[in-house]
């Protein structure tokens, strides 16, 4: 479990996350939604230990996140940032192997356990056939799955993903949502920032709605994704429609 206690995060002189107290659970996908500037990415970066909170605490299990050494933290939390286009054209397998860095000593070669984890991650993300391709030759969907496999290879308890559907067409969005769901079903805690509200309704167990850095609503998706909450979060009318067992959110 990850527990936030009066968490505040500042960006420059502006408070972008303001007094959040809530907890996230394993085996669940939690979607963070909200308008631009609501504090979604700042919250996710704080949860990943990438920014120091201005106030409050983040507890990972029973340990304050700030007390964990960097490598230990990396063994618990896999983080998939926005726009993580690799700077160099390494092969897909080399990219996925980066997920094992927290498990390896400085000059050690990949151990059998590392190789098994990389193989498994590539199989789960369905990219085994791309192993020797360089990342600059991949399509957007292939690259998204390769980046996700890198996180899976870390065998972390938690996966944080920041807008993993950005720039993907509907079939590739579906593939990434399947990967998020499968990770949670395998026992991980998944926290994902999403702008696609119907995707959030489809994949999430819980939804956190942020407005101006504060928690507007948090709980099971059926309770949170209501026209009234969405109107309060985004300032526009939206219809929440049930269709063949699925929830669709349509702006008016």
């Amino acid at each position: 479990m990850i527990r936030l206690d009066q968490l505040c995060v500042d960006l420059g002189k502006r408070r972008v996350v303001d007094g959040l107290s809530l907890s996230f659970q394993h085996r669940r996908v939690t979607a963070i939604i909200g308008a631009n500037g609501a504090g979604k990415t700042s919250l996710l970066r704080a949860l990943a230990g990438l920014v120091v909170p201005a106030a409050g605490n983040i507890m990972l299990g029973g340990t304050p996140l700030a007390m964990l050494p960097l490598t230990e933290r990396a063994r618990h939390i896999g983080y998939l940032p926005q726009n993580g286009q690799p700077a160099w054209a390494m092969t897909v397998r080399e990219l996925v192997e980066l997920g094992r860095l927290p498990h390896r000593s400085r000059f050690a070669a990949l151990s059998p356990a590392d190789i098994a984890a990389v193989d498994q991650a590539m199989a789960d993300a369905d990219i085994a056939q791309l192993a020797t391709r360089t990342v600059d030759t991949l399509s957007g969907g292939e690259r998204a799955r390769a980046k996700f496999a890198r996180v899976l290879a870390g065998e972390t308890d938690w996966i944080f993903a920041d807008e993993p559907l950005a720039s993907l067409d509907p079939p590739h969005q579906r593939d990434v949502l399947h990967l998020l769901r499968a990770a949670a079903d395998a026992g991980k805690g998944v926290i994902v920032v999403l702008h696609q509200l119907s995707a959030a309704a489809r994949v999430a167990d819980d939804v956190l709605v942020l407005r101006n850095g504060k928690c507007l609503a948090f709980g099971p998706r059926e309770e949170v994704l209501t026209p009234a909450t969405l109107h309060a979060a985004f300032g526009m009318e939206m219809d929440v429609i049930s269709h063949e067992g699925r929830c669709l959110i349509v702006p008016r």
């Binding site: 990943a48 230990g49 490598t71 063994r75 983080y79 726009n83 390494m90 997920g99």
Partner: peptide, 23 residues
């Protein structure tokens, strides 16, 4: 020569590198 693995991680960007335990 001690920088190799950190440089590999940095290929993914600064945030991803730090999330992989790079200082």
């Amino acid at each position: 020569l001690l920088t190799g693995r950190a440089l590999d991680a940095l290929t993914l960007g600064e945030d991803a590198a730090r999330s992989l335990g790079i200082n």
